[in-house]
């Protein structure tokens, strides 16, 4: 059992040599390509992650810009709407004023026409009264008139007037 702890220098040296050679050969033919592939893949993952982060930031920025623009457009639309309402109100007031003016003018014109027509009618009535008076007077003057005949004349004149 004491041999268990007795070192075999030959085995020790051979193991050192064997292991050193194995490390060297594996480093050259196995670990180098594997570590290279691993680092390449990790680099790819890092690049993809960075790109994704960049794209996320860009999309966030674009969204912010669009939101700002949308807010601006809404504000502008509200302003334009208010302006249009104001313009429409002004136009409405203008149209109402013009209509009122026009109606007043038409009314005045109508009143003038009515007055003229009235005056004309008065003039005609006056003429006719005058003519009738003249006619009545001439009839009265043409015959001797008693009360009964005078009344008959008046009735005749009135009938004549009614028929006219």
């Amino acid at each position: 059992m004491q041999d268990l702890l007795k070192p075999d220098w030959g085995v020790l040296a051979l193991t050192v040599l064997n292991f050193a050679l194995l490390v060297f050969l594996l480093a050259k033919f196995a670990w180098k390509p594997i570590i290279g592939a691993l680092e390449k893949r990790e680099q790819q993952v890092r690049t993809d992650k960075e790109m994704a982060e960049k794209a996320r930031l860009e999309s966030q920025q674009i969204k912010q810009e669009l939101d700002d623009r949308l807010a601006h457009i809404s504000q502008e639309a509200a302003q334009k709407m208010a302006q249009a309402v104001k313009m429409a109100e002004a136009q409405q007031a203008q149209i109402i004023a013009a209509a009122k003016e026009q109606s007043a003018a038409i009314l005045a014109q109508a009143q003038e026409q009515i007055t003229a027509e009235k005056n004309k009618a008065f003039a005609q009535v006056q003429n006719q009264i005058a003519q009738l008076s003249m006619m009545a007077a001439s009839r009265i003057l043409a015959q001797e008139v008693d009360e009964k005949s005078a009344a008959r004349v008046v009735e005749d004149v009135l009938k004549e007037v009614k028929t006219k």
């Binding site: 075999d8 030959g10 085995v11 040296a13 051979l14 193991t15 064997n18 292991f19 050679l21 194995l22 050969l25 594996l26 033919f29 196995a30 670990w31 180098k32 390509p33 594997i34």
Partner: peptide, 26 residues
Amino acid sequence: RLPITAHSVTIFCVSLFLLGALTWIA
């Protein structure tokens, strides 16, 4: 005396196996 023992042969076989397998995997 060459140190060709059961343990050194085992180590040599394991080394050969690792070298072959890992080089193939790489």
